[in-house]
Amino acid sequence: MTDDYLKKTKIQAKNVDFFYSDTQALFDVSMDIPEGRVTALIGPSGCGKSTFLRTLNRMNDVIDGTRLTGKITIDGQDIYAPEMNVFTLRKRVGMVFQKSNPFPKSVFENIAYGPRIHGNNDRTSLTEIVERSLQGAALWDEVKDRLDDNALGLSGGQQQRLCIARALAVNPDILLMDEPASALDPRSTARIEDLISELRGDYTIIIVTHNMQQAARVSDITAFFYEGHLIEFNKTKQIFTKPSKQQTEDYITGRFG
């Protein structure tokens, strides 16, 4: 098998250090994330996976006292450059959170929210976006008759897919997912994993997971973090069959974490 399908770099992190006020959470992290593929971030809890994920859409910026050094580029563009518009960046880099967080609004308004804040107020166009996004998140058939119902009335798994649809509605090309299935039952988890496989190709997906089988199932590339350091970054198959570092092997075989 050739590695061509991993060739094109979408996101490049170079010597990234990250600090919360006085504590350093990331140490000299560098990696090239391929376009249109699924990259899994694994490692014991507190090792910096979420922190790294949030550096990619600059959601760490909203936490007081945070600081980043090094460089992160998307399509070659430095996202921490002064001229970078962080709102445009976040429109391009969607995020799905660990605990599903639909707004206390109707299903329709949840999806329409993103397009609306970016200036789209055309009802026809919004209706079309809502349908397309829900279809993209494999939720349309389940909710097409309940678009005006409160989103908080959906099941946990549906809510999480709604959040994915909401992220898709602003046409991102990158999707960040922070343990998107950790609060879900096995059946809902399987649906999310199927969905990730469907979205693969159209979106560059970075997913944090503490579930080794999940990482092995859905990802092309895996990054193993430990105490803020990127220990190993390689094809998922490689990581799970022949890890090159002892720490990685210990972790994936369940000796710690």
Binding site: N57, M59, F87, P102, F103, I117, A167, V170
Partner: peptide, 18 residues
């Protein structure tokens, strides 16, 4: 109001005021 709602909004590219 849960921080999760605000995070969701910001992550979609909304400004703080929006």
């Amino acid at each position: 109001v849960p921080q999760a709602y605000k995070s969701a909004s910001l992550s979609l590219g909304a400004t703080k005021l929006q």
